[in-house]
Design a protein around this nucleic acid. Structure first.
Lengths: 304, 304
DNA sequence: CAGATGATATACATAAATGTATGGTATCAT
DNA sequence: ATGATACCATACATTTATGTATATCATCTG
């Protein structure tokens, strides 16, 4: 028999801090503890799990394979405690406390701010955390309370509201058209400068499937940062996909080849347990109505 | 200003124990602490989250609404720490330590034991925890390491292996047929005693959709316990759905109306991170091959 | 109705975890 | 070389958390 009893859960927090900061001292500073204490926590945890977690050196602690295996679990613990504290924040019947929202970069940076501004004007005590990233945060891990998703939610425990489809089309800035002309057919796209993503995300793959001509196309500007792509597009660097309702806001963007269109289905998703929380309820509703407005913009454009 | 610093993570463990056992004293016994300590933990946690968590009384502690809101988070913490310790168990290259498997009741009780017996004979140091229940355990919450699922896995982070379809058919024991005769058409089923589930699970609903005649049927024996249903069937109480490969093992079970068949698709699913763990890898493989055998219906060794 | 049981709350002693101070060693810029 | 600055490890003092003992109240049981 090795471990007699379960280790203190605080050790996991310390463990994570050491992993993230690379040294006992740095972790101690982060946690408001002292270096010897952090060292003792790690020693105790190593004893409990029966494995070396770090190779000590004077320039810091290097995680072992065992430590890397445990890391995601510790991260889950951290995000769960954070979510717990968020859930506990705010009173029962007032709309106050913190709500964390996850959305794609484009939606998060371009579409949500005005919606959230209205919401916060209405509820001054509401604190909003917005995680705008194209990496999927997992609602079940409670990294976010509410998410705007581009995939149909599969899990039972999630409360989902279908928004509709956001239309993506090909756009270019007027200045680009002025210099390079306007492609009239899909084939002519090969002669143009195209802007696109670097890594392949799920929805890029979907797009590739739908428009195989995109596969061979050489991109003259690529980035994983949506904002960078967007600014590149607006700066007239080239032609790229852009959310139609967003493009309508900028009169200098020209819609090219309207027959090329990708529709991404959109949901607002929340964990079922949160529906009793006023601040989540209210935020959820605001996102739903705000995004419905936004999407409606893309449908009217469609008809033209 | 309310709470200056994050509460000890140990408080969450204590909190959960109090929730589950209903009193400070009982929680203290469970945790190997004393009643005053547990009381102090709860006090401190209430101070931190700024809410009353329990209404104290001499007959125990009654959770407030706030406590019930926090409960699922605390449960996630508990299952995550359990999973972490499981992940840490066993050495890096040997197949040892604990692996937790989740499966439906029927699969878990009837199909997996022989597969797991072979596996454990091969790897004596492997410890298997089997959760046989029709409630879905969540792999992302790491309640189980490996799951046998009847729904297609949606999450990206999961490593899934498609097994194929398990056929369900209508069966009855010979003794039942002897007493009540054999239904020759679907309509005649209404005249027979039927055995089925009490609550509606997802796959029951699917079945209803496929065979609408089942909807109005009055069940003369119902239970949520698969084993009870199975024993009822074998005792000759009535006619019920049964997994075809399982039924083959018992020569006394008669296949009725073979045109009525439900096929449930089956996957073995594991969290992607676990594929580097030998014990999970090995168990995953064993489950896949074992279940493939089962689905294929190769019952050469079974002569009961 | 009295006594046993099981609950929380409090006071005090004790054990345990933490902090402080210090020493040793690698790395880097001067 | 040579300080300066990171870092970890260890010894010792102190704070903090925990356990023990006890008081008090409610509920069940004979």
């Amino acid at each position: 028999m090795v471990s007699s009893s379960e280790p203190s859960w605080d050790f996991y927090r310390t463990f994570l801090a050491v992993l993230e900061h690379g040294s006992l001292s740095a972790a101690a500073r982060e946690l408001g503890l002292t270096q010897p204490t952090v060292g003792r926590h790690i020693d105790a945890l190593e004893e409990s799990v029966g494995a070396e977690l770090f190779t000590r050196s004077q320039q810091g602690l290097l995680p072992t394979d065992a430590a890397l295996v445990l890391k995601p679990y510790a991260e889950t613990l951290a995000s769960t405690t954070a979510a717990l504290l968020r859930a506990a924040s705010g009173s029962k019947d007032k709309v106050s406390g913190t709500v964390r929202i996850s959305a794609s970069e484009v939606i998060g940076t371009e579409v949500l701010p005005p919606i959230l501004a209205d919401l916060q004007a209405k509820y001054p005590e509401l604190v909003v955390e917005l995680s705008a990233s194209d990496a999927v945060e997992d609602l079940l891990q409670r990294e976010a309370d509410i998410a705007v998703r581009m995939v149909a939610p599969a899990q039972e425990a999630l409360l989902a509201r279908h928004i509709g489809v956001i239309s993506l089309g090909l756009f270019a800035h007027r200045s680009y058209i002025a210099r390079h002309g306007k492609p009239e057919t899909v084939e002519q796209l090969r002669l143009h400068k195209l802007i696109g993503f670097d890594r392949q995300t799920a929805y890029i793959r979907m797009m590739m499937k739908r428009y195989p001509f995109l596969d061979g196309v050489r991109l003259s500007f690529r980035s994983d940062h949506s904002t960078a792509l967007q600014n590149a597009l607006r700066a007239g660097i080239g032609i790229g996909f852009y959310q139609t309702p967003l493009a309508r806001r900028d009169a200098n963007l020209v819609h090219l080849l309207p027959e090329v269109e990708v529709a991404i289905d959109t949901w607002v998703v929340m964990h079922e347990n949160l529906k009793t929380s006023p601040r989540c309820r209210v935020t959820f509703d605001a996102l739903v109505t705000g995004l419905l407005d936004y999407v409606r913009g893309s449908e009217t454009e469609d008809q033209s």
